[in-house]
Simulated assay, not measured.
Amino acid sequence: MKSKSAYIVLAIGAIFVICAICRMFGYLIPGLVIALMSVMAALISLSDVIELSRFRKFGNSIQLIALGIFICSMTLWLLPIDFSLPFAQVIGDSFTILGLGFVIVFFGLKEVFNHTKEDNSKKNYELLKYWKFNITINEYDEMMKLNDIIERLKKLDQDVFPYNKVHNGWACFSDSLVEHWNRWEGPFFDGVNREKYHEFLIALDHTAGEIGNIADTDYRSFSQRKVEMWNESIELTIQPRINNMYVASIEEIVEEINKALLLWGEVKGQIINRYEKERSEQKE
């Protein structure tokens, strides 16, 4: 409907140009016809202004009225009747000025709306970037919390493994992460991070199981060490490795831990890269 209206307006505009040329060359155009043309032009300009408001649904109706007036004016022009009326000139001049006013208002409103739209788009973009970075900050903070615990457990490995002993720190850590994951697949929101993190969880759970398989269950050989996890001081158990040639060696356990930590390094790396990239963009 909008494209059809545009063609009608173009056609009427072309006829206006022809009428103006005819008038310049001395062809008589009745005053009432000119007045009706001015009314029609004012209505078309009014429909353009209405298109920018919440009453845009009335725009097509106004254009149809303008089309009817145009047909009426052309009919009166072609009829061999004198329609000279004393108020025709006043009507023509008034609606010509009114139409010009509507045109100016139309372009003014359009400019205002364009600026408002640009401002809103910019604000929406900045807001989206702000919240996106806040999610990234949360991913980074959660990653660093886990990384702190991992670093403490690695330090405990260095204190325990050389003495052919193991500890249940990786098992406690894995159990807490798996429980958290089973509840809502946390702590990460980003799908790529969750996917890689889940691979790490599987590897860590396997490693914790291997450590449990070689731990001596004689409680008389147990010792304890406290390690901070989740803002709490958790008491971990240190146990000798079973003296059995058929279970995994400490070296094999270290290799399993390193495999899991390689996956953690990938999780950590992609979170850090995204954090650094988006942090730099906040300064732009």
Rank of each mutant, 00 (worst) to 15 (best):
residue 86 P to V: 09
residue 93 D to F: 14
residue 71 I to S: 06
residue 103 V to A: 11
residue 64 L to P: 02
residue 61 S to A: 10
residue 94 S to D: 03
residue 61 S to D: 05
residue 129 K to L: 09
residue 91 I to Y: 04
residue 70 F to E: 00
residue 103 V to L: 15
residue 127 L to I: 13
residue 72 C to E: 05
residue 91 I to V: 12
residue 87 F to N: 04
residue 79 L to M: 11
residue 112 V to F: 12
residue 119 D to L: 15
residue 89 Q to K: 12
residue 92 G to T: 02
residue 101 G to Y: 03
residue 63 Q to W: 05
residue 104 I to V: 14
residue 98 L to S: 03
residue 128 L to V: 09
residue 86 P to C: 05
residue 79 L to V: 12
residue 119 D to P: 00
residue 108 G to L: 11
residue 70 F to R: 00
residue 83 F to D: 01
residue 106 F to Q: 07
residue 64 L to C: 09
residue 80 P to I: 02
residue 85 L to D: 02
residue 113 F to A: 12
residue 66 A to E: 00
residue 94 S to G: 05
residue 60 N to H: 11
residue 94 S to K: 06
residue 61 S to Q: 09
residue 116 T to L: 15
residue 103 V to T: 14
residue 85 L to M: 09
residue 115 H to N: 14
residue 59 G to K: 04
residue 89 Q to W: 10
residue 93 D to S: 13
residue 73 S to M: 10
residue 97 I to M: 10
residue 67 L to D: 00
residue 69 I to L: 13
residue 82 D to V: 05
residue 61 S to F: 10
residue 130 Y to V: 07
residue 67 L to R: 01
residue 66 A to P: 02
residue 88 A to N: 02
residue 110 K to D: 13
residue 87 F to D: 02
residue 71 I to G: 07
residue 101 G to S: 07
residue 85 L to W: 09
residue 118 E to G: 03
residue 65 I to L: 14
residue 96 T to K: 08
residue 86 P to N: 10
residue 78 L to F: 12
residue 68 G to K: 05
residue 70 F to T: 07
residue 82 D to E: 05
residue 86 P to M: 08
residue 63 Q to L: 13
residue 107 F to T: 06
residue 82 D to I: 04
residue 128 L to S: 15
residue 68 G to N: 06
residue 123 K to H: 06
residue 79 L to Y: 08
residue 62 I to V: 07
residue 70 F to L: 03
residue 79 L to N: 05
residue 80 P to A: 04
residue 88 A to R: 02
residue 101 G to E: 02
residue 108 G to W: 09
residue 102 F to G: 06
residue 61 S to L: 14
residue 66 A to C: 01
residue 105 V to I: 15
residue 71 I to R: 01
residue 71 I to D: 00
residue 97 I to K: 13
residue 121 S to K: 14
residue 119 D to I: 13
residue 64 L to M: 10
residue 114 N to E: 15
residue 72 C to W: 08
residue 124 N to K: 12
residue 121 S to M: 11
residue 75 T to K: 06
residue 80 P to T: 03
residue 101 G to C: 05
residue 63 Q to C: 05
residue 67 L to I: 06
residue 110 K to A: 09
residue 119 D to S: 14
residue 87 F to P: 00
residue 94 S to W: 06
residue 78 L to Y: 13
residue 123 K to N: 10
residue 100 L to T: 13
residue 83 F to V: 07
residue 88 A to L: 04
residue 115 H to V: 12
residue 66 A to G: 03
residue 115 H to E: 13
residue 102 F to D: 01
residue 126 E to K: 14
residue 115 H to M: 12
residue 129 K to G: 03
residue 63 Q to T: 05
residue 66 A to S: 06
residue 121 S to I: 07
residue 84 S to L: 05
residue 74 M to V: 12
residue 80 P to Y: 01
residue 98 L to E: 01
residue 61 S to Y: 14
residue 107 F to W: 14
residue 62 I to P: 00
residue 87 F to A: 07
residue 107 F to G: 03
residue 59 G to H: 01
residue 106 F to T: 08
residue 94 S to Y: 10
residue 62 I to C: 00
residue 128 L to I: 09
residue 74 M to F: 08
